[in-house]
Write a protein that binds this DNA or RNA. Structure first.
Lengths: 343, 343
DNA sequence: ATGAAAGCGCTAACAG
DNA sequence: CTGTTAGCGCTTTCAT
């Protein structure tokens, strides 16, 4: 039953007796052009009857704009953080009447170049590169003139949006301090300071942590290093740290997964969290609310990165203004749940 | 420095002295048309020098095909399962030289209709609707002639791909049976059989479970009902079930999150999994490998749904053949980890 | 083996 | 207020 050909402006024009441009104007009702209200109504009715939907490819060819932004991710669609970033992006894009074309890449530069080329061939109005881990990355020289932005990571020549890690690190320490903790252990510092190509975010987070402890004239009771931030590290780290400094009252874990491991170790030692041991971490992934007690943690603003990134990009696209050269930093919010207790 | 205008076929034509159609032919090197190898080479070199990328909007306008498929999800981008489905889709699409345009919707039919309209205006060659939960849903009558498919869910008039729940339910029971368990408890059956608009998958899974137990002449030692499949249910369920039937040797949990709760309850009771209590569940979400012991579970084929769905869709798009009217069912794989022990 | 002409569906510029 | 003309960049006849 499907009409073999979809209706075009010409169909509506024929049906109503007006010309094609008139139909076009009426349907787009721009403020400037004055089409008689009566004809506009007629035309719209006809369009609705025919089930007309404008052909975006034709429109784009003519206007040079596609109302589409491209999203490339280095595996972000495959991780627990993808959701927020993509969702923020999609929502903002949709609110501002833009569609999103998505391409997945791995870490290989040639794959990224390929994805960039494909998106460019589709004439996207702007490009968003979302990175799962905050790393520095070498991107192909931005040849086209499209607006572009990188989320979470850093790349030479690309405007960027990322999490504001330094104050977050401070906040975590201060939260513990304010609740009376003076004997704090840290789990998850890199064995050596990470290269920017490996991580740009966590080292800054640790700088913030160190800054706040130094300011309070404090040293950690113990530290357990590591750079594979999975539960295993927290599990072993908690045992190590608690063996070394049994009077520790609070543990600062570099992320939620590590904190999860800490929780298991604490249970094994017969320690009750938070009565016997407080715990604070970073990320606020779904896991944080699945465990009991639920984790007090600093939420990484993935969703906001998507929203703000898309917003800035679309501002630039719309106004033609340049994107800020400075990296835009978004705060991590402290989510107080059940793992920190005042002593 | 950016060239204000991107290079077109005409630019290459001017530069090489050939005509625009010749350049087009040479660049697309179709089997049929015979362009001299020498000129093809010349043209390709020129194209590369200019950094030419074909304008997809122009091409689409002319050919009527966009080499793009649309993906709509009812919140799938926001859940733990999104990753696999989206990734399978993206990979298959990319392998077959198609791009993906994505739109996020909630459950409101009018939102879906809107997304459908937008994607249709972009003239996508095919439509994939991915649903997070396997439900039956009423979709706007498919007006356009584009190929379409629904993943995980069911909708009148839409070809579908979904998980093969019945044999998976059987397999879970049989796995326990084969390992000597005869005293099994079940956690997570709906209080009453779910409506298709709520869930089409889990009830079938339970049918499979019931079928295999009946076949073995077995009854569950105890059951704990519920339809909010979160850890809390498993936690309370395990306690209830173990209180009611302390001789239970294995628990069948309706999903991993529930199993996670079971693990916590077992620990609380001083029960060691799997030595004192075996446990099997469904989904294989990331959580399954984060807990210790790691969960033995039946993996939901989200990624495969994406792959197979995209594959079928693209077959239809390419060949013009119709998609199968039958729902295509994909197996759940049993992932043996550490929560089931032979007794 | 290559060129000339036409047209996909739309919008912008200019008449009237 | 509305119609005419033109053209975005590409591919597809049809000539040569």
């Amino acid at each position: 039953m499907a009409r073999s050909r979809r209706p075009t402006l010409a169909d509506i024009a024929r049906r109503t007796g007006f010309s094609v441009p008139t139909v076009s104007m009426a349907l787009n009702d721009k403020p400037g052009s004055r089409i008689a209200d009566s004809t506009a109504k007629l035309i719209k009715e006809a369009a609705a009857e025919l089930g007309y939907v404008a052909d975006a490819t034709a429109r784009s060819l003519r206007t040079g704009r596609t109302a589409t932004i491209g999203f490339i991710s280095d595996e972000v669609t495959v991780t627990r953080f993808a959701a927020g970033m993509l969702r923020g992006l999609l929502e903002t894009a949709e609110q501002r009447d833009h569609s999103v074309m998505i391409a997945e890449v791995d870490h290989h530069p040639e794959r990224i170049a390929r994805a960039l080329g494909i998106l460019r061939s589709h004439r996207v109005d702007g490009l968003v590169l979302g990175m799962m881990t905050g790393r520095e990355i070498a991107l192909p020289a931005p040849e086209g003139a499209e607006a572009r932005i990188v989320l979470n990571g850093i790349s030479e020549g690309w405007p960027a949006v990322g999490p504001d890690e330094f104050p977050a690190g401070q906040a975590a320490v201060r939260h513990l301090l304010e609740r009376g903790h003076r004997r704090i252990a840290l789990i998850g510092r890199h064995p050596e300071r990470a290269l920017p190509s490996v991580s740009t975010n966590i080292p800054v987070r640790l700088d913030g942590i160190d800054d706040a402890t130094a300011e309070a004239g404090l040293r950690f009771t113990a530290e357990h290093h590591g750079d594979v931030w999975e539960p295993e590290l927290g599990f072993r780290g908690a045992h190590a740290v608690l063996d070394a400094a049994p009077d520790t009252t609070a543990i600062l874990a570099v992320n939620d997964r590590v904190a999860f491991g800490v929780l298991q170790a604490a249970a094994e030692r017969g320690l009750c969290v938070p009565a016997d041991l407080s715990l604070i971490s970073f990320d606020d992934e779904e896991l944080a609310t699945m465990v009991r007690p639920q984790l007090t943690t600093l939420r990484l603003p993935y969703r906001e990165m998507g929203e703000v990134g898309a917003g800035m990009l679309l501002d630039a696209v719309t106004s033609g203004a340049a994107l800020p050269a400075e990296r835009t930093l978004l705060p991590l919010e402290l989510i107080e749940r059940d793992t920190v207790q005042t002593i």
